Amino acid sequence: MPLFRVEDWDDAYANGANIPGGDRWPDAWVQPAADFRDRLADKILDLRYGENSREVMDLFRPAGTSRGLMVFVHGGFWLRLDKSYWSHLAGGAVARGWTVAMPSYPLCPEVRVRDIARSIARAVEAAASEVDGPIRLSGHSAGGHLVTRLVSEGTALEASVLGRVERIVSISGVHDLRPLLRTAMNETIGLDAEEAAAESPALLKPVRDISVICWVGANERSEFVRQNSLLANVWRGLGLATEAVEEPDRHHFDVIDGLAEPDSPIASTLLD
């Protein structure tokens, strides 16, 4: 059996350059997100949850009584993008009767990754104060890291809110930050070895007994597939109910599309 070594760490985490037509994203999300915001009647936009100018979130509410809170945390390698690109991904949860919170957050290099994790904890706490019931968490890429960090030892999430979290679906999540130390983008992210280890969910114990589903596109870069199975494997060994899913014919950018549809496999997994 041949051995395999990653020789180019920048390429290992490069998505757009390795997906046919990859330069369509993130612009391809802008109009669907804007259309969803325009047509949904019950929403609160730019609800502030912290002092930083980027610490704002959107709340999308269903018709009738809410079943609970779903929080979606966007990706962008802790460096780029904001909540405005993803609004349409609330569609599946809202149709199922859930209130959806989508936060923006401060970005590197203005802050460190550990500061972003604390910011997301504040966002979830603020959203939880607006919505009763259970909480489901999902995030994409760096967002997958951030939502799993919320239930890892050293979490900044207050106990009363942590106790409401029932399930996490981490989508294409980066759960071990140490490989990023070898990438050029880390010159901007600013991780050092100590922080990379301290903020990696795969190196930490979970602090709540919940179900954790790690979801990735089968056509993604091998590093994202490896990172996906890594957390499910490690946390299953620590007693959690976990699953690693590789969705066929999906890549890093379209693997999240199912969140917009109430009956898709990924929405059903997150919300049933």
Score class of each variant (00 low, 15 high):
9 W>Q: 00
12 A>R: 02
14 A>F: 02
15 N>A: 07
25 W>H: 10
27 D>V: 15
28 A>H: 10
31 Q>E: 15
34 A>G: 09
38 D>H: 13
39 R>T: 11
40 L>W: 08
44 I>T: 14
50 G>Y: 06
54 R>H: 10
55 E>L: 07
56 V>N: 10
59 L>H: 05
61 R>V: 12
62 P>R: 08
63 A>R: 14
63 A>Y: 12
65 T>Y: 11
67 R>T: 04
69 L>G: 01
73 V>P: 09
74 H>T: 10
75 G>R: 05
79 L>K: 12
80 R>N: 14
83 K>S: 02
84 S>Q: 08
86 W>P: 03
87 S>F: 05
87 S>A: 15
96 R>G: 15
101 A>N: 01
122 R>W: 09
122 R>Y: 09
124 V>T: 09
126 A>Q: 11
135 I>C: 02
135 I>P: 02
137 L>C: 02
138 S>A: 12
140 H>S: 07
153 E>R: 07
156 A>R: 03
161 V>T: 12
170 S>H: 13
170 S>F: 13
177 L>A: 03
179 P>M: 06
179 P>F: 04
182 R>E: 15
188 T>I: 14
188 T>M: 13
190 G>I: 11
194 E>R: 11
194 E>A: 12
198 A>M: 04
201 P>Y: 02
204 L>C: 13
204 L>R: 10
207 V>G: 02
211 S>F: 07
214 C>R: 10
218 A>V: 04
219 N>W: 07
222 S>E: 15
226 R>E: 15
226 R>S: 10
227 Q>H: 04
227 Q>L: 02
228 N>P: 03
229 S>I: 05
231 L>Q: 00
232 A>E: 03
238 L>G: 13
240 L>H: 09
241 A>Y: 06
243 E>Y: 07
247 E>R: 08
249 D>F: 06
253 F>H: 11
255 V>E: 02
256 I>P: 03
257 D>F: 09
257 D>A: 14
263 D>A: 12
263 D>F: 05
264 S>L: 10
264 S>A: 09
264 S>W: 07
265 P>Y: 05
268 S>G: 10
270 L>E: 00
272 D>E: 14
